[in-house]
Design a protein around this nucleic acid. Structure first.
Lengths: 199, 199
DNA sequence: CCACAGGTTGACTGACGAGTCAATCTCGGG
DNA sequence: CCCGAGATTGACTCGTCAGTCAACCTGTGG
């Protein structure tokens, strides 16, 4: 007898509600009851579907991060220039934010940028992204598209760091938002990292 | 009657102990009693010198951040190229880490990268640094040293983002450390941001 | 119509830790 | 030698919440 999923997937509702609550109040400052309330579900049901409050966040992060890792791998498999690959990756991340700002806020603020609490658990996953990007740079250095002045690992950090910083700017309202700003940001990141500021 | 400072400044001892404890356990996960124990001081004394646990962290952050802002201002006042200014700023930050890794870890992990909890309170202070760096870039764009393809504000973010990412790498052991690595990092940041990766 | 499995409920518990406070100490000045 | 102000102590209070659990639905198959 296959598990008959109820018409409305409460587990999904809890996850979606958690995104909103975490984005609004932050993981540490919100109560599990806030998530249950937001989902319109009883307190105990959260513990029916998840072992702990932590597991809710872990699930959200892993769900999304795996999608991103897969996207990066696909980009890397294409036969285009490294610059185009970097642009595609920047696009993917920026568009992820455009599509679901709350989810990206949670992932970045509560996991990626919180390497001492949650990030620690997921350092490996995060490092995978770095490694993949580093690989793209390294290959471009061998092919001659990029020069070898700086290490590939470092270049990957600068690239990802720039994107994360921009997202953080949007998340906290330090930086203008909107479709134009999003598209401009993609260009800027790639242009700065590849072309540099020098005239 | 001037307040006679005791031979040993307990307030300072508490702050220094807090740095070690926050660096080791993280702000949220440590107890105030951990700080008191580490400082070799009674629990209540922490509350004699500080209103709250938060104020301890605030004090640590502001003390150091103000030093950095002042350093950036001084650098900006010099009559050297923008590239040299950026190098000097990168140097200052990297050397701050070299000199007191625990303090920098606390500031970055618990404040700068935690913009939803503590960072929120200090967004203004953090923005000051961005603005100052952005000013350097803008001036260089007017003088012709830098091209104007990307906005100065954005360039500042990329620059600071790259540095923060590298520090984060050191803090969590993702990146090799040591005097050589520190000096190389300074070069790499400036070289990537100014020169770009393209050959 | 009943039985049963899994979904759903929310009151309750137990631990934990920030912040309080009254008592005690220390030391310089009178 | 005594007094008072500020420094220092640590046991205690008090609210908060993560996680538990026993009871209660719901709908499916026999």
């Amino acid at each position: 007898m296959a598990t008959a999923r109820p018409a409305v997937d409460k587990r999904r509702m809890i996850l979606d509600a958690a995104v909103r609550v975490f984005a609004r109040q932050g993981f540490h400052t919100c109560r599990v009851s806030d998530i249950a309330d937001e989902a319109g579900v009883a307190y105990g049901l959260v513990y029916h579907y998840f072992q702990s409050k932590d597991e809710v966040l872990d699930t959200l992060f892993l769900e999304r991060w795996d999608v991103m890792l897969e996207a990066i791998r696909e980009v890397d498999a294409q036969a285009v220039s490294a610059r185009d690959k970097l642009y595609a990756i920047a696009s993917f991340i920026v568009d992820s934010y455009r599509h679901d700002p709350d989810l990206m806020k949670v992932i970045i603020v509560e996991v990626t940028r919180a390497a001492n609490s949650f990030g620690a658990v997921h350092l490996g996953k995060i490092a995978e992204a770095y490694a993949q990007i580093g690989g793209i740079v390294e290959q471009a250095q061998r092919s001659g598209e990029f020069r070898s002045t700086v290490s590939a690992q470092f270049a990957a950090m600068a690239f990802y760091g720039a994107i994360e910083q921009v997202l953080t700017g949007w998340i906290f309202g330090t930086l203008d938002q909107g479709d134009d700003a999003y598209d401009r940001a993609k260009e800027y990141v790639v242009e700065t990292i590849c072309g540099g500021l020098n005239s």
